[in-house]
Nucleic acid binder design. Sequence first.
DNA 1: ATTTATATAAGTCACTTGCCGTATATCTCG
DNA 2: CGAGATATACGGCAAGTGACTTATATAAAT
Lengths: 217, 217
Amino acid sequence: MKINVAVIDDNAFLIKAVLDKLSFFEDIHIKFTAVDGAMACEKIKEENNVQVILMDIEMPKMNGIQATEIIKNLHPQIKIIMLTVLDNDESVFKAIQAGADGYFLKEVDPQTLYDGILQTINGGAAMTPSIAMKTLKLLRNPLVMEREVQLDEVQLTSREVEVLEQLSKGLTYHLIAENLVLSPFTIRKHIENIYRKLQVHSKIEAIQQAKKRNIIE
Amino acid sequence: MKINVAVIDDNAFLIKAVLDKLSFFEDIHIKFTAVDGAMACEKIKEENNVQVILMDIEMPKMNGIQATEIIKNLHPQIKIIMLTVLDNDESVFKAIQAGADGYFLKEVDPQTLYDGILQTINGGAAMTPSIAMKTLKLLRNPLVMEREVQLDEVQLTSREVEVLEQLSKGLTYHLIAENLVLSPFTIRKHIENIYRKLQVHSKIEAIQQAKKRNIIE
DNA sequence: ATTTATATAAGTCACTTGCCGTATATCTCG
DNA sequence: CGAGATATACGGCAAGTGACTTATATAAAT
């Protein structure tokens, strides 16, 4: 059974270089390539059996970090390995936050890249020792992580927060209505307004967003 | 120029096993061994040119984490690689906090261990892919550490965990079915089984329980 | 060899949820 | 004062969800 891989990079020569590196390995099959994050997101919708994506970071239209976040949200089972020239703390940290499963620099040798793909498929994380050291340092330094990514301020009313809190406990519309002595219709309307403000479309997404924005817990 | 290595482990047989593994490599020189953290701290004072320490965690008198902290404070230039049977989140996190430069499990093969020693000397970090994945997950969610209470073990199958992970991202039955190339009916059945095992009755409750039990992040 | 657990697929039924409306009363801010 | 935001309540509809049942195939355990 071959491993289906996609390669995303805005530089055609570098895509070629990666394909050359992987061409030695019989069980690697290149499913598609793309030259920016947006194109990657488009193409991934049409493919249902890509297992691993090799993702550049610096690209026009949409960068590799954003693309990683989007693809990981829609297809958590797809493994994404960053393949980039950037090795600064910020790039590494953001890629990991976005859900990257591995991180190599572009000068990586073919065997290491191939081994990394296999390890990643088996649930491990692939990275060069220098990147691994960066992650350890980031893990030791709590300040890096506390850096609040300021999302645009969302103003929820006290009632909406109240509803959100109950929602996050797993209560249904009806139970929340009983608890707050309101009509279930009203609860539903509040939740609709919450969805609009947080730009989400389900309870679970709303709870995730609310936690990310420190609205609850 | 040989690499001076020290091996710390309370089990004489395991020390022997490590020495055997490294005996293949001509440029490794074993400077000393010790059977607990206290003895390691003592011996390191008398040696001024140890470059790498292979450190067990579970030991009498003083464990490997504490010893790592003390030695790293006094001799920051010495590289310490954990070599242990423990691969739980807490051990990995504490070892890194203590200043460990690498983390291998005891079943590591000789070549990987040797490569790890070289990489560590060159400023990288050495670890198996599974440990690397743990560090990434810890970086994404530092709060994982705050779980001490062990709830009665719940045995979910790998498929169920897979479904649970996608569920926690807010995906619907249909999207999960597409991602895993299964029928939506099957997804629903898996979710029913998950509910029964976790004793919950909704997605949100299942996600909460799963997080509490460290089944998912 | 039989049981048990797992993975898969399918169906029904009642209820929930997400999204689209409408409507009224209150309150605040400019 | 009047516009806009808020809180409240109600209705419809399509899709999603949770709780049942049935069924087959396979692998692991006893």
